[in-house]
Simulated scan of single mutants.
Amino acid sequence: MIIGFGNDLCNIERIQGSLDRFGEKFEKRCFTEGEIAKARKRMRTAETYAKRFAAKEACAKALGTGVPRRGVHWKMMEVINLPSGKPTLSLTEGAAKRLAEITPDGYVAHVHLTMTDDHPWAEAQVIIEAHPS
């Protein structure tokens, strides 16, 4: 069963503006060390960050909280890639706690993520499913 759904659209130029204005301070506020390392290796850094920013917003919506609310903050949601390359989210601290709160007893939650960009937009969708354990 679906227990959460979130969608977000992010302007890549706005993310580039934040990078230009705040640089590392912006990166460290919103992204994990792994996400920063990945983005810095890419030629299209702003697009990489914009997709991840949208993913975090979509995830917070799927959790029913928004950011930063109810103990869910930016760095508690990390976009990672499975061995296949498929993106997903790793949740820690308050985000993991919130996921546990919305997951029915006897069920296991699975977070699905898709991201895309087409300048000047980046978009992400998150679906949280619960399956009987």
Rank of each mutant, 00 (worst) to 15 (best):
H73R: 14
R69T: 00
K61F: 11
L89I: 14
E78P: 11
I36W: 09
K51H: 00
M77A: 02
R70N: 13
A58C: 10
K97G: 05
V72S: 01
L91H: 08
A39Q: 01
K41S: 15
S90M: 14
N81M: 04
R52T: 12
A60Y: 03
P87M: 07
K56N: 08
P87F: 09
A96P: 01
A96L: 14
A37Q: 12
G94F: 03
P87I: 08
K86F: 02
T45P: 00
G66A: 03
E33G: 13
G71K: 04
K56W: 04
R44H: 13
A96I: 01
A54N: 10
G66T: 05
G85T: 10
V67H: 00
K61V: 11
L63V: 10
K75W: 00
G94E: 04
T48C: 15
A60M: 04
P68D: 04
G85K: 10
K75M: 11
S84D: 12
N81D: 12
H73C: 09
A62Q: 06
M43R: 15
G71M: 02
L91P: 09
T48D: 14
G71Q: 06
C59M: 14
G64D: 08
G34P: 05
I80W: 00
G85V: 06
H73W: 10
S90A: 13
R69N: 15
V72H: 00
R42Y: 00
I36M: 05
G85E: 09
S84E: 10
T65R: 06
L89M: 12
N81P: 04
E78G: 12
M43N: 15
R70K: 15
K51A: 14
M77T: 01
G71F: 03
K75A: 04
S84V: 06
H73Y: 11
E93T: 11
A55M: 09
E35S: 09
I36H: 08
C59W: 02
A58V: 06
M77W: 01
R70C: 07
I36Q: 12
P83N: 07
M76E: 15
L89S: 02
G64W: 08
G94K: 03
V72M: 03
G85Q: 10
K75R: 15
E93L: 11
A96Q: 14
R69W: 01
L63H: 06
S84N: 13
E57G: 10
L89K: 01
K56A: 02
E35K: 06
T88C: 08
K56P: 07
R44M: 08
I80E: 07
K51P: 00
T48W: 02
K97Q: 14
K61Q: 11
Y49V: 10
Y49R: 04
T65Q: 06
H73P: 00
K41N: 14
R40I: 03
T65A: 10
T88Q: 05
E78L: 13
F53R: 06
S90T: 06
I80D: 02
R69S: 12
C59A: 15
A46D: 13
K38R: 15
V79S: 09
Y49G: 09
L91Y: 09
G71T: 08
L89R: 00
K86G: 04
T88W: 03
P83R: 09
R52D: 07
